[in-house]
Design a binder for these strands. Structure first.
Lengths: 391, 391
DNA sequence: AGCGTTAACTCAACTTTCTTGAGTGTTCAA
DNA sequence: TTGAACACTCAAGAAAGTTGAGTTAACGCT
């Protein structure tokens, strides 16, 4: 009867300070090196307040002084930058056969990255493996656990019991309990869980082609095809955390309606080439097929581009993003080929003359994208002001 | 070279207070009547802080005492509620042939609503008409201008120069300058501009079936078909304010790909019936055709439901909303018919057993939906905490 | 019926953090 | 050479939150 109040944070001095700290960090990260006055103007705070906050952050080892810049008249600007070893983030990508882990510093540079095969895909095996990898990563990088700000975990979605469960690539045993909580308890760290596409999008935003973009979409070629949506600088998660399940929508290829994922994904290209007797298991195989201009691969690429054009129309018209990024487990040359061949829909809100970004861009590809993205989730959190965050 | 800092507000005492005030108002609005302790728990503020804020809000005439409720042990709760005449919002919907206006009180109850025909669709004519309507509305309702919190304006999108311009129903002369600013200067009020679908979605969230929902989609039957997306309680606007342009995406009807809007919109049903020699100009005509079970109308409804099923699959899988609402310029009986006939996609993240809301619901329909939604934009703003709002 | 427990709310003192305004040092331009 | 522009610091003051003790009212156990 009594509808419960959704918790949302009020502002008290402590939270205000924390909010402002993150605001300052974000501003410094955004431009690499800035002075206090500029931050003050952008944030609506007094220079004094910014000065105090920066001196705090220096004390916490999150910032370093970064020389002076004399900009026209007046006292030269004392600039500050993020201190790379001010903190670290642990990124984990869980797959049915292996766990990928990476350690990333505060500016997003990978310190180490590793692939660990799994004996089995059981929940406890995964938790043990991740724990062990975290411990050994800390030792290898000579970092204290206190310097770890958190862990990002990439797991195959969708989460919970949906109409899409029962499909391939699922991990058993994770439908009960909140994965984030389970990992948080095991690792004793703040944990953020996302799917591969969302994580990849954040990686791109932290240190890739989407740097500084607040509204974009990321199409992630994985086992299937995932969509990561960033709106206003935040990942769009949906009511139950399953937004971006684009793989199952219908698109047109050669006049026929097919599931998008069946035309553009790693499984799709493997299946297509397997029908022609070609056994492709890794990215190198694909690259060599492409460099030899394999006809079947080119046909597949053409169909993938067609499917993508439909998908692009939907994404652009529904989200009106600054750009759409393509990346993931697909060689760069193939992504570039697809991008070059994808017809940019004319009837689209994105077809505007005053664009500054291309409508379709290639992001970081390769096996570690999502893992680094997992770590990027932690960094994102560290650089995002907290008050008024609803969840 | 120097990338500019995106302004984002830091927290100072003044803004913290304003944030907290809105938080308290929102909490009270959400449940109708609450006590201070409960708000304190939900917001993470002390009861003392909430008490102080409430006494402020009482002084400003935004709240009224709402009796005591004895809930178990302890001192009975002194409850508070929004004071209806604590403020008013003006809603405007601009169409090429007429301007719709409405005055709404702080709890969302319409005080008056009106349709004013336009001599022409020129910019100055519109501005004059809206100004005049605002003035006369204040007089008629005996409200001082000071009690007006702002104006919401609904205008046909998309905004700016896109691949979709040059189509029907546009207003000339609004592509230069920011419409919000122009109206704000003319009316001398805070102004919020949105398209019809977004406004309707907010109306539904304020006082309709989406009350209390933070993640949902609203399909608005207007001239065409628009999609209003609410994510985390906020309208999803996209990078250039044109998100939700769903009318032009391709869907399948009887195995053929067509533009969604050509199968489900007012223009579509009019065109379809006109081909059969039936001239339908208003909702009453449609209702009588429906009650006489007109074959052509039933065929159209069937196709609309088919198209909608495709659209629903896309919306659900991309946004993972709590529910999808149908409303707008279409009679309730027709909306209900369409909803009953729309196949709910099985392969959808929304097809989950633990749902609490239906996947498809009917919202408020009728000519004034978007106009009331325009006013709801103002209310929404009044009830939304401000710190960390990025735009 | 009496009395201890529970819970909402208030009062007054205290704390945190921000702002303000005066003052310092550096640079550029007239 | 001088003054304006600008970044930054210092110290005092102001705003808004928290804390802890005290008050009041309802419930429930004896």
């Amino acid at each position: 009867m009594v509808s419960t109040l959704k918790p949302q944070l009020g502002a008290n001095p402590e939270r205000a300070r924390s909010h402002n700290k993150q605001l300052v960090l974000r501003a410094i990260r955004h431009v690499g090196a800035v002075g206090r006055a500029e931050i003050a103007r952008a944030s609506g705070l007094s220079t004094q307040a910014v000065s105090n906050i920066i001196s705090d952050l220096l004390g916490e080892g999150l910032l370093i002084e970064q020389g002076v810049r004399s900009a026209g008249r007046g006292l030269p600007v004392q600039q500050y930058a993020i201190k790379p070893d001010g903190g670290y983030a642990f990124g984990v990508e869980v797959r049915p056969t292996a766990v990928f882990t990476a350690l990333v510093d505060l500016v997003g540079t990978p310190v180490l990255a590793r692939r660990t095969p799994l004996r089995n895909a059981g929940k406890s095996t995964i938790l043990e493996t991740v724990s062990a990898q975290l411990a050994s990563a800390l030792i290898e990088a000579r970092i204290s656990k206190g310097a770890l700000m958190g862990a990002g975990i990439v797991m195959p979605g969708p989460f919970g019991d949906t109409g899409l469960t029962g499909t391939e690539s699922e991990l058993p045993g994770w439908n009960t309990g909140d994965p984030a909580e389970i990992f948080a308890n095991t690792l004793n760290l703040p944990v953020f869980v996302e799917n591969d596409a969302n994580a990849a999008a954040m990686a791109e935003r932290m240190n890739g082609v989407a740097r500084g973009l607040d509204d974009f979409a990321y199409l992630y070629f994985g086992q299937g095809l995932g969509l990561g949506l960033v709106q206003n600088g935040q990942i769009l998660q949906g009511a139950f955390g399953n937004a971006g399940e684009i793989g199952h929508i219908q698109v047109l290829v050669d006049g026929h309606a097919v599931e998008l994922e069946s035309a553009t994904s790693r499984l799709s290209v493997q299946a297509c080439l397997a029908r022609e007797g070609l056994d492709v298991t890794n990215m190198e195989d694909l690259i060599s097929l492409y460099s030899s201009a394999n006809r079947h691969l080119l046909v597949w690429l053409d169909k993938a581009a067609q499917a993508l054009s439909s998908a692009l129309s939907i994404i652009e018209n529904l989200f009106d993003p600054q750009t759409v990024i393509l990346g993931g487990a697909m060689p760069d040359v193939l992504l570039d080929h697809i991008i070059a061949r994808t017809a940019l829909p004319e009837r689209s809100v994105s077809n505007r003359p005053d664009r500054v970004h291309p409508r379709l861009m290639r992001g970081t590809s390769g096996r570690m994208t999502a893992t680094l993205g997992a770590a990027a989730l932690v960094l994102h959190q560290a650089f995002t002001p907290t008050i008024a965050e609803a969840r």
